[in-house]
Design a protein around this nucleic acid. Structure first.
Lengths: 149, 149
DNA sequence: CTGCGTGCAAAAACTTTGCAACAAT
DNA sequence: ATTGTTGCAAAGTTTTTGCACGCAG
């Protein structure tokens, strides 16, 4: 599912207004690039793609912009254990979690409402108001189980 | 709950035998230090504590040893979003997950068997064999909800 | 105009690694 | 003896930052 530009725009403009941020050519480019791609993107990857359209954007601006997207809630920041932060679009697709193969690094996404409901329950029990969450299951995918056996 | 030295010892010695690793003064010091502490520890923190007993251990050895602990399954590696890997003892206490306050950084641990069971179920459905997992719920703790309201 | 934003390069923060000396088996 | 281990410092990665210039509002 692609992310919905309408909702995005709304969240973003409210966020930028709130913080007195300005709309710039670079920010638009980076944000559009990020949402046009899909998956779990490193800053490096977003940068590479954005540069295809404008050779002059600096990686620092990409770092700064991705951080804004994260703070605005439009992107989740993830850490899959390699040393890099990866960003993932947070609107326009249903929430999902990850199954990660520790051998071949395959990542499978899944969602499970029942788990989500239980999470809320647990949080409430501790007086928490959950804003977001991440869940990652690490193990061996079908193929790697076979090869390792 | 403190970690149980017996189980630890066993897992560790099997792991070291398997890989032809040697027992050294530094490794013992670092491992003991790690398990004597509690919580989510950065390499820096373990190092600081270990140095109290032996000024000469180098931070490189701590990095190397923590990686071994992680590979042996005795320590989980976590990433809470600050730029550091944090390690947490993986035996002697039941598995648990985390509620993290995004405002004051309070971390509450919890466990929920029902969720664990559902995770296994989902994994199996995708042909995965789960070895470990982590789940983190981000939000506002009781206190911060009040202050932010 | 005014102040935020950008690019660049330098720096910071964290982690890994090459190597010679050293220690465990 | 042999082979793995350590400390150190250098190098690698990823991310942040200072600053002068530029651009949006």
């Amino acid at each position: 599912m692609k992310s919905s530009p309408a909702k995005r725009e709304e969240v973003l403009s409210r966020f930028m207004a709130e913080r007195g941020l300005k709309t710039t050519r670079q920010r638009n480019l980076i944000i559009d690039t990020f949402f046009s791609l899909d998956g779990h993107l490193s800053v490096e990857e977003v940068w590479a793609k954005a540069r295809e359209l404008d050779r002059r954007v600096s990686v620092a601006t990409v770092y700064r912009t991705m951080k804004l997207l994260h703070e605005s809630g439009l992107a989740h920041a993830r850490n899959f254990g390699d040393g890099q932060t990866r960003y993932e679009a947070a609107v326009g697709k249903d929430h999902h979690d990850h199954l990660i193969c520790t051998r071949c690094s395959t990542i499978i996404e899944f969602e499970n409402d029942q788990i989500e409901r239980l999470q809320d329950l647990v949080a409430r029990k501790h007086g928490f108001k959950v804003v977001s969450h991440k869940m990652e299951l690490y193990g061996l995918c079908r193929g790697c189980q076979r090869e390792t056996a």
